[in-house]
Amino acid sequence: MFLSVTKISKYGLAARSPAGLRCLSHFRPLLNSSASPLGIDNSVESNVQSETNRLAKGGKKFWKNVTLGTAPGNKIQVELDSKAIRTPLGNKLAIEGDRKLLGLLLQHEWDLVPDSAVKQHSLPLTSLVSRCIDLESTNGVDGDPELRAKIGGDRDAINKDLLRYLDTDTLLVFSPKAEYEGTLRKAQDKLYLPIIKSIEEYLTNNFSEGKRPIKLNILDADIHGLRGNMQDTATKEAATKFLNSLSAWNLAVFEKTVLSSKSFMCGILLIVNKAFHNTVKDLAYTTDDIVEASTLETIYQTERWGEVEDTHDVNKRDIKRNINAAAVVAFKK
């Protein structure tokens, strides 16, 4: 009873996992590495003169034309009145030449900013790409460790934070058979079990020490009741290896996906399908599938109890825009 109350509460998405601690995430950021919207640096007073900081502080449009220019190394950069936009850390907002679609969408995003106040949620792509670029620059060969700490860019710290999502992964938590006349459980079995199986195989084949089979522990409400879920050390090691294999760019995309879907496995699905040329047949999932998997329980709740306005409808769009933005940023021709 308590659980179903928290589920339709304002914090519905955050409280979805039975590991009740998630409720707290609204008050205390779960990750200190999470990128703030617009890439605004709230941690320390930042005096870097960059376009993203200027917009974040002034909130007013200060340019007329947005164009795409070229940068050294066959890169595309987004320019405001022929001056390159820079990220919160002062790096140029330049992307590789084979991410043309992303470039066009970034240009479109800055074109859309209205004359009046700029909203925190209006530049999601820029915010994510800025995080990608800043992570890349601070984790590069001559990256500044101080700046790295400032944006929460230490890879070990990010890994540690992200691994906590694998313990209580949404895709590993199964509802009791009694709920919703068993329909939700049936849907979960149908959707989650194949994903779990193929991700176990994927981790075993690519990241397991001596190819020892990886087993993901699930939390079945009928058997285990209400308790936390934990993964084995071998699983965590393989997952860490997977994280270390990602480029800084892909790690930022992965982080965004995990934070919005509350699922480590959704992150793997997105990266494998959008950033890599997916060669694993069983792991082929679209963004719609990923969103469905991560919000399955909410879908059944709103079907039964109705949609709470200002909550479910907003959350639904939020997760969809974030997952699809991650997919676009990950894509490389």
Binding site: K274, R321, N324
Partner: peptide, 11 residues
Amino acid sequence: AWGDAARFLDN
């Protein structure tokens, strides 16, 4: 990817 981009814009 084009579909993803369209879905992103719509949402």
